[in-house]
Every structure is written in C-alpha cells, then in structure tokens.
Write a protein that binds this DNA or RNA. Structure first.
Lengths: 200, 200
DNA sequence: GTCTATATTGGGATAGAC
DNA sequence: GTCTATCCCAATATAGAC
C-alpha cells in the first residue's frame, strides 16, 4: 500500500518538525506529547504508531534538526572557503536564533541533553562531531588551523549562542554574539602570537 | 530568639546546597522538592517556610553556586595575574566537572535557564557579568585583551564545559576541555595576527 | 519551623473502536 | 494509522497538628 506508507512518512516528518521546534523553544520536560501532536495536526493517541516513546522522539529530533541546520547548506562553487566560513558564522551567531526556536540543537539543548539517557547523548555527540568536520573542511582551504582550534571555536559558537539565549538582557546578548563572531574569525585564522614570535 | 533564627539560617543554607547539587546534576525539572529536602535532612512540608516556591529556590541556588564557585577564590599575593588566570582555567575546565555536579551554574544550567521566568534569567545574567568581571580584572594585569576578547573567552569556557558534559564520549570530552584551555590562554593574550601585521 | 496527610494537576502510556 | 477514553503515577502546593 504505497499511499499508506507515504502518508505515514509525512506524518512522521511533521511530528519531528514540531517536536524539535518545541523542544528547542522550551526544553524537553516542558513540552508534552499532546502539544507536539497538536502542532503536527494530530492527536495524542497516534503518537505511538510512529515512535516508541518520548525519549526516542527526542533523539531523532536532534538528528533531524542537525540534518536541516544552516551548517549543512552546500557552499556555492563561486564562493571561496574563507568567505563561506564568514557566512556560516553570520548565520549561526545571528540574533534571530535568540528567542524561541534555534536552528542548532547543540546550542539550544546542551545542558538539557547532558542529563538524558545514553542514546540521546549519542545523537548529540555525533552532531557535535559533524559540526567540527564541516568547519574543518572549509577552514582547510585557507588556514593551518587544526583540530584543537576548530574544536575550541565550535565550543565558543555553541556556548556563545547558548549563553546569549539564557541572558535576560538583549543588548548584552547581541554583544556576546558579535564578540564570538569576531573572535571565531581570528581563531580560525590559525597562527597565534606565539607562532609568529617563534618564526621571527 | 537568636537560636531559632540561626537554626533557620543553617537549614536554609543546607537547602541551597543540596538544591544546587541536584539541579546541576540532573536539571531543574528532574529534581523534586522532596529529594532536595531529604538531601538536606528535612521533610518536604518544611520547604515553604524557607522559600516561596520551587522557582524562587532555583534563582537563589544559582546565586549561591556563583558565590562559592572556584572563580570567586582570592588570588594569593605571591601569584601574578597571568599565573592565576591559568589556575582558574585549570580548575574550571577540569574533568572533575564532567560528571554530575559542576561548580559553575553558567555551564551546568545554560539551556535550562533559557526557558525559565525572568527572575531566574536575571540571576543567570548577573552571574555571567560577574564571571567576565573577574577574568577581566586579572587579564588587565598582563594583557591588552579587552571586553570583546574576554566575553568570547568566557563563552568558550562555558560552552566547552557544557558541551563536554553532554558528550557521550569521555575521551572526546577531555580533549575538548584541553582545547578550550589552550585557546583561552591564547585569546586572553590579546593581540591577534592582524594587530601584528598592522604594526609591521 | 518542622512534620504528616492530602487536594489537585498534568502528562506518559495503553486499550480498543473505526 | 488515527482517534477517544482511561489508567496510573509523580510532584507541587496547602492544611493543620505539634
């Protein structure tokens, strides 16, 4: 029955979308299955035809969000690696990510994930590795910045956005995003003062 | 009645301690007032003699944790500012903060706070400002690193620790802490490649 | 100020009709 | 596969004894 299968896939997709939207806005515990299903234009009872339980949905919604994040966009041929990194930073540390939903589960759910079961943390860990791989790939086209610098930069991006979302002071939050953007560009340029001094 | 007043203060202190310990380990929603009171050797009913509700306790426990954090220790006279920054980084990005409780509420509760009421976010915001002020104070003794660099560094420290706590891979988590430590030292040294190039 | 007992709510999960 | 109805448990908050 192709219709039934396709229809089920569409329902599943809608559930994943509304789940991530609500989880990133309000956290795992503060969102009910009822709300998620309503937002996906279904009722509560139907949920268990798609997911084993709420925890399984959480895990899959993290993977889903990572797969549609701005970081996953393909670089146009005409743009060089360094410019593309700037574009990615601009999109990631953008003030539109401050209120409510947020494109990146690494930032919106960091401390929430830390207290969940291993399957959920595994989805988070793989997403983090993926983010580092993407940044490294483009950085390699113009800089000698290595794994350590890239990891510290992604931590700063995630931390900057996560903290900015928690702040109760919009001006400070936007200042923080801007600071992280500038320093990320510096850090990804690779060489440090020490390197230069040694070369002198 | 001095005895009664003092006794109440001690009870309140015990509640704040066990509250922060449990909140930082398992998040706000996953900890019940019952558990907190048991951990403080009291019973549930007594709670409301000390705090208006659970939310008020959350707010005060964040301020309490910030007040006893390692960052609040006083620098010994004999140690210079730069060495002290290294000591603070070592303590903050230490693997003993990975499992369970964590000295810094900014890292252990970042995304948890983002979805709470304004009073809680205010406590978080003030704690963040305090962390920046402390780092800036010591950095000023040896570097020209300004507000932007300090804010980006604290975001990296908080983000590094928060993400490392969420990861399901101990080796990767420790590598991340180490990367943030090294890059924080670099960043707090202030000048960037661009600065040096301009000076040339 | 601390205790026990309880009112009340909310939400995860299941049963069963269609 | 989706719906309605229901079971069940956990947790906040309150009432009232001591």
């Amino acid at each position: 029955m192709p219709y039934t299968g396709e229809h089920k896939q569409q329902s599943r997709q809608r559930i994943l979308e509304s789940a991530y939207r609500l989880f990133s806005s309000r956290g795992y515990d503060n969102v009910s299955i009822n709300e998620i299903m309503n937002e996906a234009s279904m009722t509560r009872g139907g949920f268990y035809a798609h997911f084993e339980n709420k925890s399984a949905l959480y895990q899959e919604s993290i993977r889903y969000a990572a797969s549609v994040s701005g970081l996953k966009q393909n670089k146009p041929e005409s743009v060089d690696g360094e410019s593309w990194i700037h574009t990615l930073l601009e999109g990631y540390l953008h003030k539109q990510n401050l209120d409510g939903e947020c494109q990146c589960p690494l930032a919106s759910l960091a401390t929430d994930v830390a207290v969940r079961d291993p399957q959920i943390r595994k989805a988070y860990t793989e997403t983090f590795k993926g983010m580092n791989a993407i940044i490294q790939k483009y950085v390699d086209t113009y800089s000698d910045c290595e794994r350590q610098g890239v990891m510290a930069t992604t931590a700063m991006m995630i931390g900057g956005l996560a903290v900015a979302r928690a702040l109760n002071d919009k001006r400070l939050a936007e200042e923080l995003l801007e600071a992280c953007k500038q320093e990320a560009i510096n850090m990804l340029n690779g060489a440090t003062i020490e390197d230069l001094l040694v070369e002198d």
